[in-house]
């Protein structure tokens, strides 16, 4: 395991009596050179989990082990400097993640400058710009002169230029159109192969996650409810939520898509504030059982690698 979590928890204290459970008791691990896909609805805590792994957010509870060593509880600037060469992140919003006052050269070269690299920053930035499929001549331009997809590439180049071993990709493709998404996935694949990357790939599009990742974790309201090899989770989902999620994924073939009867997930996602014990999905679950409402299900192993947190399997 390159990085793994134990009972990782993040609660946001909203008021005196209101606690938002953004991430609750998450245990995941990522093998070296593997990709873990993290899926879940909006607001399920994916970004929060990713930011805790990078040290940007302070965890409320639990532990993160990186190469077997626990990461510091609260990252100082020094810790970040130390781990910068190991852990990086590609941010969800390609607009807010680039400083509008800096040129592309300064943005991509920022890591090298902070790290005090003795490389020729200009040349390295130019080579990375062509690696992510952009014109190196655009180095002296400003972010507002680029499209969302191009900005996302700039974000990738910024994270990759210091050649980290683990990268959190927070929905790097949701801002891109479908044709560019495929290019992007290929780019990530190439980089992964050439740099020996380990990735946490966050997305809500299941089919894309299946394509890029070796393992898949499904999150719901802050907890991981199913975890296993990508294909296995995708083709034989166990948790009712995963099933619904996969069924609601549109079929590329319009004939098939039309003949398919989709049961939409009913109800709203439950509020993440002051969560009580019991299965978090019980309000919307089509196969809910009485015990689901007050006993929190624990992760149980189905196959060697496939685990699920659901009372149907205990």
């Amino acid at each position: 395991m390159l990085i793994s979590t134990k009972h990782l928890t993040k609660h946001f204290q909203l008021g005196r009596k209101q606690t938002l459970h953004a991430v609750d008791d998450v245990n995941i691990g990522i093998e070296e050179n593997a990709t873990l896909g993290l899926v879940g609805e909006s607001g399920s805590g994916k970004s929060t989990l990713g930011k805790m792994l990078t040290g940007l957010l302070r965890k409320t509870n639990g532990e993160i082990l990186f190469r077997g060593e626990p990461l510091p509880d609260k990252f100082t600037a020094k810790d970040h400097l130390y781990y910068a060469k190991e852990i990086q992140m590609i941010f969800q919003d390609p607009y807010s993640s680039l400083n509008p006052r800096m040129t592309i050269l300064d943005i991509i070269g920022e890591g090298l400058r902070i790290q005090g690299s003795d490389h020729n920053i200009r040349d390295l930035v130019a080579s990375w710009l062509s690696k992510v499929g952009m014109d190196p001549d655009h180095m002296s331009r400003y972010p507002h002169e680029f499209s969302g997809g191009q900005r996302q590439r700039i974000g990738i180049a910024r994270a990759m230029i210091i050649e980290p071993s683990f990268v959190v990709c927070d929905e790097p493709i949701s801002a891109l159109d479908v044709s560019v998404q495929a290019q992007f996935i290929n780019l990530l694949d190439e980089l992964k192969a050439s740099l020996g990357l380990t990735l946490l790939f966050i997305a809500h599009d299941l089919s894309m996650v299946r394509y890029v990742s070796d393992y898949m974790a499904v999150m719901y309201l802050g907890s991981v409810i199913e975890y296993g090899p990508s294909d296995e989770v995708f083709y034989s989902p166990k948790h009712p939520y995963t099933r619904l999620l996969i069924e609601s994924n549109p079929e590329p073939d319009p004939k098939l898509e039309r003949s398919r009867d989709v049961i939409p997930i009913k109800g709203e996602i439950t509020s993440p504030i002051n969560i009580q014990s019991g299965c978090r999905f019980s309000d919307r679950c089509p196969s809910v059982k009485p015990e689901c409402r007050h006993i929190t299900p624990v992760m149980t192993t189905i196959d060697s690698n496939h685990t699920v947190a659901c009372h149907l399997y205990t």
């Binding site: 600037a77 970040h80 400097l81 990086q88 992140m89 969800q92 993640s97 902070i114």
Partner: peptide, 23 residues
């Protein structure tokens, strides 16, 4: 402070004064 570029710079090891003066 909540903008992504601040988090990115922090991840790259930027100290407080760097974040303040540069970003």
């Amino acid at each position: 402070r909540e903008q992504g570029y601040i988090e990115a710079a922090r991840l790259l090891g930027g100290r407080d004064h760097y974040l303040i003066f540069r970003h």
